[in-house]
Amino acid sequence: MAAADEEQQLLHLKLAFLAREPPSCVLSLARKAGGGSVTPPVQNFILANCTGNNAWGDQKCTYVTTILKRIIAEAELSSDIVIDGLYEEFGQFMSSKSNNSSLNRTEKIYREISFLSPTDDNKLVSLVARLSCSTNMLEGDTGCSLWPSSLFLSEFILSYPKIFSKKCCFELGSGVGLVGVCLNYVGASKVILTDGDVSTLENMKANMEMNKLCVEKEGSQLLKENKNKVQCKYLSWEEASESVLSDCMPDLVLGADIIYDPVCVPHLIRVLSMLLRRGNNRGTNNVANKEEISNEFSSTATEAPVAYIATVIRNVETFNCFEKAAADANFSVVNITNSEAPSSLLPYMLSYDRSSVQLLKITLST
């Protein structure tokens, strides 16, 4: 293996660990970095760059213990040498785990999502988003989970920064807030993140603060002097009205995995209608952005706002319901998944299936 390739494989291994990828994915990358087995040099790398990283304190205990157990078992099975430091580290984490059994019941896990630079063969990290996420989405905490569509939409934003730079961006169903971190990174003039679940909203605010973003408070003047402009708002689609959205005049509306329930589709369409229709009353406020958008995409520039929705079609009937409701609302829905495909900025996240995500560009037909 060439030195450059080995360096890249080791970087991917470290980033997968920090992203809290499933142990099987981390083990696969460890094998790849070792040319087919978890060699002593790879084990030393894991000790120095992964398990020794104390960024998240004790919350990583159970995860690290599992990783070490899998790495040791793999090395023993393949008749490779297991370095003493690996056994010692495993013993320390097992001891820490037994002394504090409450660690096994934590509801959150901290993940570092590192986006790699598309211009340097995925060897340089351009952005790191630190997020508190749910450990178990099956217990109703779906808003605090990290979904493939959110990763895909984030890659899209970072791949086409000029579309979002200097724009007011409004996200529906923001979840853990990853898209908001990316929007701020590319220089959006304002980022409005919304969610209809109170606990999800609180977690989102905490994530913004963890990423050193200024979370706007009601009546605050701080945002006017701060380059990190993020606002987290409660928004129930069922209760949303013109008056509720009166202070929101976004250039761009975004959403990830928000087409999931046919019961919610009418409410989603109604909110989208209000947000996209508002742009038609803004006169020439957005004219200066037309050339920029036109240069980024080949499509015709428009003054009206645009919505970008990333979604995994898990139920065809639900998606068909959305398409019909969108057509009835006079929306133009264009699938740009292939024509405007984002760069692959998360190659180390083996659990992330990019091929399952569709990207829709939605505008209000004139």
Score class of each variant (00 low, 15 high):
231 Q>N: 15
197 D>K: 06
264 C>H: 10
207 N>F: 05
217 K>M: 14
206 A>V: 04
210 M>H: 13
200 T>Q: 10
263 V>H: 07
216 E>Y: 09
263 V>D: 13
216 E>R: 12
228 N>F: 11
215 V>I: 03
214 C>M: 09
210 M>V: 14
249 M>F: 13
257 D>Y: 07
208 M>Y: 09
202 E>I: 10
216 E>C: 13
189 S>A: 15
229 K>H: 09
238 E>Y: 03
223 L>G: 09
210 M>T: 15
206 A>D: 14
224 K>L: 14
210 M>Q: 15
228 N>I: 02
238 E>K: 13
246 S>W: 01
193 L>N: 02
193 L>S: 10
266 P>T: 07
226 N>M: 10
251 D>H: 12
261 D>F: 08
239 E>S: 10
247 D>G: 11
188 A>N: 09
226 N>G: 03
256 A>P: 02
252 L>R: 05
247 D>I: 10
238 E>A: 04
212 K>H: 15
223 L>Q: 05
208 M>E: 00
195 D>F: 09
205 K>C: 10
203 N>S: 12
242 E>W: 04
188 A>R: 11
243 S>M: 11
216 E>F: 05
208 M>A: 11
215 V>D: 03
253 V>M: 06
199 S>T: 11
238 E>L: 04
188 A>P: 11
247 D>E: 15
210 M>R: 15
255 G>Y: 04
253 V>Q: 07
242 E>A: 12
189 S>M: 15
274 M>D: 00
268 L>V: 05
260 Y>M: 07
196 G>I: 01
216 E>G: 07
240 A>M: 00
222 L>R: 13
214 C>E: 10
240 A>K: 00
235 L>W: 04
260 Y>W: 14
194 T>K: 12
241 S>R: 00
273 S>L: 04
272 L>A: 05
256 A>K: 00
233 K>H: 07
267 H>K: 08
246 S>Y: 01
259 I>W: 04
207 N>W: 05
198 V>K: 10
249 M>C: 14
205 K>L: 06
251 D>W: 04
233 K>T: 06
228 N>G: 14
192 I>K: 08
238 E>C: 03
199 S>V: 12
270 R>C: 02
243 S>Y: 07
262 P>N: 08
256 A>C: 05
199 S>L: 12
273 S>Q: 12
241 S>G: 08
265 V>G: 08
243 S>G: 03
241 S>V: 01
268 L>R: 07
203 N>C: 14
242 E>M: 07
201 L>G: 07
215 V>C: 05
217 K>W: 12
228 N>V: 02
236 S>H: 00
228 N>D: 14
255 G>S: 02
228 N>W: 03
219 G>K: 14
268 L>Q: 07
256 A>F: 02
251 D>R: 08
275 L>P: 01
197 D>W: 02
201 L>E: 11
269 I>H: 01
190 K>W: 13
271 V>N: 01
260 Y>P: 02
256 A>M: 02
217 K>P: 06
261 D>K: 12
189 S>C: 15
207 N>C: 06
206 A>I: 10
214 C>W: 08
197 D>T: 06
252 L>K: 03
238 E>M: 02
204 M>C: 11
271 V>L: 00
211 N>K: 11
261 D>I: 05
232 C>S: 09
234 Y>R: 05
270 R>M: 02
221 Q>I: 11
228 N>Y: 11
227 K>V: 10
237 W>R: 01
215 V>M: 03
260 Y>C: 12
248 C>W: 03
273 S>G: 11
266 P>Q: 06
249 M>D: 14
